[in-house]
């Protein structure tokens, strides 16, 4: 490791807050992209299940 101690890795001779804030926000932004994409898929799947259920119900009442 370039830094001698763990606290020096966090502090980065005074630049730590800028650097770690940047990486923290990046994790949040990239993570939320995955989260939003997954949620959209789940919502669509629920919607499709409802369509299929309605189709099956209407076909069973015709019989």
């Amino acid at each position: 490791m370039y830094f001698d101690t763990f606290s020096e890795l966090l502090n980065m001779s005074g630049h730590g807050s800028y650097v770690w804030f940047s990486y923290g926000v990046s994790v949040v932004v990239l993570g939320s992209l995955i989260f939003v994409a997954r949620r959209r898929r789940k919502q669509t799947e629920q919607h499709i299940r409802a369509i299929v259920r309605r189709k099956q119900e209407s076909s069973s009442t015709i019989k």
Binding site: M1, Y2, G14, G16
Partner: peptide, 17 residues
């Protein structure tokens, strides 16, 4: 890049961004 690369001689550690 955060822990192993040496600091920049002008910018110091902020360059890790």
């Amino acid at each position: 890049g955060l822990a192993f690369v040496p600091a920049d001689y002008k910018q110091g550690n902020s360059f890790r961004i």
